[in-house]
């Protein structure tokens, strides 16, 4: 059973790694955001699988933390990526005036 779970974890890792290929090849903002998301969810899934294998329940807490923060980072990413949202253009334009 443990081997099956670990194999699943391995497959997810490979999938996530494949998701990185577009970034390496020079991707758009959207691709970047999706890659972060992918890593968030992929990481959570692998963590849960590893938790099930090792029986350490606290790993679920790590998964929880990772899930929350990857959602948070995605928001931050949208806000900070230039020209990815009109809100940010406003604030960065303001910044340029000051600088």
């Amino acid at each position: 059973m443990a081997d099956v779970l670990l194999a699943a974890a391995g497959i997810i890792l490979v999938t996530v790694a494949l998701g990185l290929v577009p970034i390496v090849r020079g991707a758009s903002a959207t691709d970047n955001i999706l890659a972060v998301q992918l890593f968030g969810t992929g990481g959570v899934a692998v963590l849960l699988l590893l938790g099930a294998v090792s029986g350490a329940e606290a790993i679920v807490d790590v998964a929880l933390t990772l899930a929350l923060l990857s959602a948070f980072v995605s928001v931050a990413f949208v806000k900070s990526y230039p020209a990815a949202s009109s809100d940010v253009t406003r604030s960065s334009a303001m910044y340029e005036c000051r600088a």
Partner: peptide, 14 residues
């Protein structure tokens, strides 16, 4: 892209 790589890298480190 480098920063995105770093964030992903942090998740893997966990």
């Amino acid at each position: 892209a480098a920063v995105v790589g770093f964030i992903a890298y942090g998740a893997l480190l966990a």
